[in-house]
Design a binder for these strands. Structure first.
Length: 254
DNA sequence: AAGAACTTCAACCGCCATAGG
DNA sequence: ACCTATGGCGGTTGAAGTTCT
């Protein structure tokens, strides 16, 4: 799809390079292949992915996609005020050592932190102009809004903790989850199929939400009925309390 | 309502460090 | 000691989304 859509759109974007490597946004199919590859072979040996998984992506691209987007332990959604203060503190101490800073923020990637810092703090170093004052006010309004949401979430979470634990324990029993994550896995014959989310656009189209539970855990929706029952319980927590969901996979507010 | 300006973030690039032959 | 492959890191880009005028 991208090949058709993107060809000729911009240099190198979504087209197959001379070496045969695809570039540009990842498709759901590619994500699926990469996820399956990691499930079978583990992380690392990224240059083997093309050969073993049938992906037309170079090793670097695969690693980046996995590390920054597909890794199940990734936390999604807004940077919390607490995380923000950690970022500021560690940046003051270490400078632009994003990967070092990221190690202190479980579930956050260096790319995410880098983007966040550049977006929210870099410009503030400049002398405030009229425009930047407005931007700052906008940011403060947003931040205030998100802080309120975060507080609400925390309140809801206290109430919901026990319910969530119970459901996760059930999932553990029923689904034999081996990975340190909460992507539900579905037994299909001899294979265990992951129900990882597949693509940014798909998530948005499906109203896909990654919710932060206890500030640490991301929970996607499941894809078979039995699991849906369990996950529905979790999603309904969102519905019941409203505004519980953080931003979707891309982090972009819809 | 529409276009401009701005923001966000996924993905790329180049460089560097390290391991293995 | 040198070369090559690989992975990790930080900087940058640009498409898409959002807000402003």
């Amino acid at each position: 799809m991208y090949l058709g859509m993107m060809a000729g759109h911009h240099m190198g974007w979504g087209i197959i390079e001379e070496e045969g490597w695809r570039k540009g946004p990842w498709t759901a199919e590619e994500d699926g292949l990469l996820i399956e590859y990691v499930k079978l072979h583990g992380e690392g040996r990224w240059n083997s992915v093309a050969r073993l998984a049938g992906l037309k992506r170079n090793g670097k691209s695969c690693r980046l996609r996995w590390v920054n987007y597909l890794r199940p332990e990734l936390k999604r959604g807004q940077i919390t005020p607490h995380e923000e203060s950690i970022i500021l503190e560690l940046h003051a101490r270490w400078g632009n050592r994003w990967s070092t800073i990221a190690r202190s923020l479980p579930g956050r990637t260096d790319n995410e932190i880098k983007n966040y810092w550049r977006t929210h703090f870099k410009k503030k170093a400049k002398v405030p102009s009229d425009a930047s004052e407005k931007a700052k006010n906008r940011f403060l309004r947003k931040k205030q809004f998100h802080n309120q949401q975060h507080q609400q979430q925390q309140q809801h979470l206290q109430v919901n903790q026990e319910e969530v634990k119970r459901i996760l324990a059930l999932l553990d029993e029923n689904n034999d989850i081996k990975m340190p994550c909460f992507w539900p896995q579905v037994k299909q014959g001899m294979e265990t199929i992951s129900t990882y989310p597949h693509h940014t656009t798909d998530h948005q189209e499906q109203g896909f939400n990654y919710s932060m539970l206890n500030g640490n855990v991301s929970l996607p929706e499941a894809s078979n009925n039995e699991d849906n029952f369990l996950w529905d319980g979790l999603w309904n927590l969102n519905d019941v309390h409203g505004n519980f969901s953080s931003t979707c996979a891309t982090g972009k507010a819809s």
